[in-house]
Simulated scan of single mutants.
Amino acid sequence: MILTGNLQMAEPTRDDIVASAPIRIGGVTLVVRDLERTSRFYRDVVGLEPIGKEGHALHLGLDGRVLLSLRHDPDALANPPQSAGLYHIAFLLPSRNDLGAWVNHAHRTGIRLAGASDHVISEAVYLADPEGNGIEIYADRPSSSWKRIQEVIQMGVGPLDLQELSRSTTLTWNGMPAGGTVGHVHLQVGDIGSADSFYGELLGFKINAAAPTVSFYSTGGYHHQLAGNTWQSAGAGVRGEGTAGLAEVELLLRDSATLAAITTRLTDSDKPPLDEGRSLSIFDPWNIRLSLTCAPMALGRI
């Protein structure tokens, strides 16, 4: 399947293409009912390190960077599969070698996989956490190898040879490697038109690739930092309060000019962000919370 859309491409190297983008993913917050079991999964399976606890929230990540916060609410309602919210959190590994090491780790420890795909621009393995939140573990191919047609990065869905991947690695999995990060977040939305208006027109993402039931949103020449689909959630309304699952996605902005431009577009559309001190908060059409933080980062580091 080749997806089409419209994207003005930059040409950063593979090393800085994620870190140099005007908008990148920071951390993701999930509401969970069983904190002990879920946090153990993200430590033992995904390889994140506990960073600290704040109230009812446990923070996990790497090298002091919070990539995931688990907010404990044992009374939270189960998140229906047809609702708007999270499709998957995608953890980006630095290399194919690292992905092969993780696949061996999954085989060795009996981790149940939901699927695996060769997306042309990346190779990815899919699974779910104990509360049903989707997870992707992936590694990009070098951006110089990505095929572009009329400035559109060509993505696809094909089989991934896990045996070859596991045989080819020279590494042993010892937890999330240095440079690991959240590469993108894929959402379930109620309709694509509203998602395109919000994430494209208001937040300023380019629609890199699109089909009637899915759009991929990109900045800085990356294939996508966000995506939205209606595969299970067509017609979904706003997320209810007190529901388990996705609570917040943090968007890190490269500079104050990017933040100011987004703020102006939101304010002009009568959707001004909420000032919460260190960040601004906004809500998409399905009440999915996004925090905007101006957080410059040195190029070449994720």
Rank of each mutant, 00 (worst) to 15 (best):
G156P: 06
I51T: 12
G204I: 10
R289A: 02
Y222G: 06
A178F: 02
T293H: 07
A78H: 02
L62N: 06
G235C: 08
T38C: 14
H107R: 15
Y217A: 08
G180N: 03
V152G: 06
L35N: 06
C294Q: 05
T172E: 05
R112D: 00
Y87D: 13
T213K: 04
L165V: 06
W102M: 02
A247D: 15
A210S: 09
H88V: 12
L99W: 10
I111L: 15
L292S: 14
I288S: 05
E250F: 05
P273F: 05
H184K: 14
D75Q: 13
G47N: 04
G200Y: 07
F91T: 04
P273S: 05
P94W: 00
R65S: 14
Q82M: 11
T181I: 11
F205R: 06
V238C: 13
V45H: 00
P130H: 07
R37G: 01
V214M: 07
C294T: 04
H224D: 08
H107F: 08
A106N: 07
V182T: 12
P273G: 09
N6D: 10
R167P: 00
N6R: 15
A90V: 09
S83Y: 06
A261F: 02
A178C: 01
E36V: 15
E36Y: 04
A101D: 06
R301V: 07
D196N: 12
P50V: 09
F216S: 03
H56E: 15
S95F: 07
Q150P: 00
L259K: 15
L251A: 10
Q82P: 08
P12Y: 00
T170Q: 14
L292I: 13
M176D: 01
S281N: 05
A195K: 04
N6S: 13
E201R: 12
F205E: 06
L30T: 09
Y217G: 08
V152T: 15
N97F: 01
S279Y: 14
P159T: 08
A257M: 11
R96W: 04
A195Q: 04
E201M: 08
P130E: 03
D129T: 02
C294P: 00
D75G: 04
I192S: 07
E276S: 15
I89A: 10
I302Q: 11
A124I: 11
A257L: 14
D268V: 07
V18D: 11
L246K: 10
A295G: 00
A260T: 12
T172Q: 05
F198D: 01
R71Q: 14
A244I: 08
L253G: 13
D73P: 04
L93N: 09
R239V: 05
M297E: 11
A124M: 13
M1S: 11
I149D: 13
R33S: 01
S95P: 09
F216Q: 04
D16Q: 05
R167T: 00
D73M: 07
R65E: 15
G26Y: 05
S145G: 01
G47M: 04
R254A: 15
A209T: 15
S20Q: 07
V249W: 11
G204C: 10
L7C: 03
T38M: 11
A298C: 03
A76Y: 01
S194N: 06
R301L: 03
